[in-house]
Amino acid sequence: MSLSETDIQAIWLTLRLASVTTLLLLLVGTPLAWWLARTRSWLKQPVAAITALPLVLPPTVLGFYLLILLGPNGPVGSLMLDLGLDTLPFTFPGLVVASMIYSLPFMVQPLQNAFSAIGDRPLEVAATLRASALDRFLTVVIPLARPGFLTGIVLAFAHTVGEFGVILMIGGNIPGETHVLSVAIYDHVEALDYRNAHMLSAGLLAFSFLVILLLNLVNKRTHQGLGQ
């Protein structure tokens, strides 16, 4: 009982996609979540709504619009062609862009909640102790928001691993490029190859369970450490 080379390739591709997506989301999501948690601007609610949209939007709808937007005739796609770049649909970078949008709320919302929970006081205290704004963020906000970061990272990663609809729309099914795990499972089922479908599915099930279990354990310990 062993995995085919295509399946192993699919697992690696999926892990690579989830890692890159999570890393980039961390970079984009942190400032966005910080802004959402602190701002009093009227833009806050509209931006929060757009960020949360992927939670309720059917993945196929999201994928469809991305395909149009990024395709050779779409505004972004034609701009990229004009700049001498390849278009994104049916490529790995295209999957990353789509995954980032699809998993954005899973990174931003835990971070935003964690940032809001800190409140003004610790930052004011740090300022009176001579810490500049960046210093305060690095030495007070990040440690105090650690459970939020952990939740965001794990959820964004796991959610990217499991996505299907968006990928099918914008990535297609190119081995080594866009043939990810969920698509591989779909293919096996289509071909009535239940044995391989089982292997991959059971693997994902165990992975998901372990992720949630680990997250709960780590967050519980952090909360105890902070005495909350």
Partner: peptide, 17 residues
């Protein structure tokens, strides 16, 4: 952070971490 001020708040507000 550029004022040489020491501030003791009403609640001690220690860094919990």
């Amino acid at each position: 952070h550029r004022r040489a001020v020491g501030y003791v708040f009403q609640e001690a507000s220690l860094f919990p971490h």
